[in-house]
Write a protein that binds this DNA or RNA. Structure first.
Lengths: 193, 193
DNA sequence: TAAACAAACTAACGCTGTTAGTATATTGTA
DNA sequence: TACAATATACTAACAGCGTTAGTTTGTTTA
């Protein structure tokens, strides 16, 4: 009754908005339904269940993060590209922490869609490393290193794990990125041997 | 009735055991109570609420991680100390992933107990850096870098975020640690200027 | 205009953390 | 030893959660 022609996309968008404004922790289907002026059970006409909703939001988050990173490295090479990439990642994590968290909750089971999402995650860093003469094996290890540094930084800062000292965390992050660049440079030298 | 003289510690220990065996995700007070052959409401004679239970388990996890790290670096210096520290951290995360996760859920509000726990987290890496001639400011930044790398690695591997390639993740982790050691070495040179 | 479909509904189930009120076993004290 | 106090268990219930079944109703298609 009082049908409003809600689409699947409307549901996802409303869910993203709600998660970003109220936090992932307090998100619920009943609250989402209430925002859309329907009952929770009516959501099931548009989504299969909560897990799939999270999965879709996770895909969205990954694609947004990817876009931000690709935009950041456009036209840049080597050190400048890596620094810009790290900066874009860091800003995404700080500006959209709730959406960022959803990525980690993705069920990384061998599934075609998740397989693609996995490669969307690594594409920016892989591209940014193009300017370095590295073997594929080195790149496969090094992209993990980069992602560990960035994810570790964002999630710990968000959780309040860096509050022991007042020093600027962005500065600590730049230091971490510098360590990664050093690693790229020596890996490059070793690859030539 | 049929009183069994349960103590606060019994509850915490049973909770830890249950989380480690069944996973943090499926943990519930009713399941915990069932394992102890009491009703869920009876738990409230021993704990204030679930948040406080998690907080205590988080303290436990931090102290275990700290012990493992301090044991690992005993008698070691510089590169060997850092590598041993990283290895101990990595193994803790792999062997006790469910308990490890609880640390991140700790409410890092300014509170005396949590303040102490925060310093328990950084003590091992701070000690391991003793062999390097660094300024206090450098150490405060660098401990964040180390923790980011290690936490980023553990949490992403646990979440399945490193499954794009078959390469050994432990090898990727050693590479990350090598980058951190490079950073320590260059920071040391800069500190002498 | 009738049939098919889509999108909403109500009601309920089993799960969750949590509280109030009650009974009983253990412990401390006179 | 007897009595009071305390601690530990209980039952019953509440509000919230995700989810399902069955039903009504508006819209679209034939």
């Amino acid at each position: 009754m009082a049908r409003q022609g809600l689409t699947h996309a409307d549901i996802i968008n409303a869910a993203i908005e709600l998660i970003e404004s109220e936090g992932l922790h307090s998100f619920s289907l009943r609250e989402l339904a209430s925002r859309l002026h329907i009952k929770a059970s009516s959501l099931y006409n548009h989504i299969r269940n909560m897990d799939e909703l999270y999965t879709e939001i996770g895909y969205y988050a990954i694609s947004e993060l990817k876009k931000a990173q690709l935009r950041a490295i456009e036209g840049k090479e080597r050190t400048r590209a890596i620094e810009a990439l790290a900066d874009a990642y860091y800003r995404f994590g700080k500006e959209r922490p709730e959406i960022y968290k959803v990525i980690l909750s993705l069920p990384m089971v061998k599934n075609d869609a998740i397989h693609k999402a996995g490669f969307d995650i690594i594409e920016p860093i892989m591209t940014a490393m193009d300017g370095y003469r590295l073997t594929d094996l080195q790149k496969r290890h090094l992209q993990r290193v980069f992602r560990s540094i960035m994810h570790g930084f964002i999630s710990q800062e968000e959780a309040g794990c860096f509050r022991q000292f007042p020093e600027d965390t962005a500065e600590s992050c730049r230091m971490a990125v510098r360590g990664f660049i050093l690693l790229l440079e020596i890996s490059e030298k070793e690859a030539r041997i």
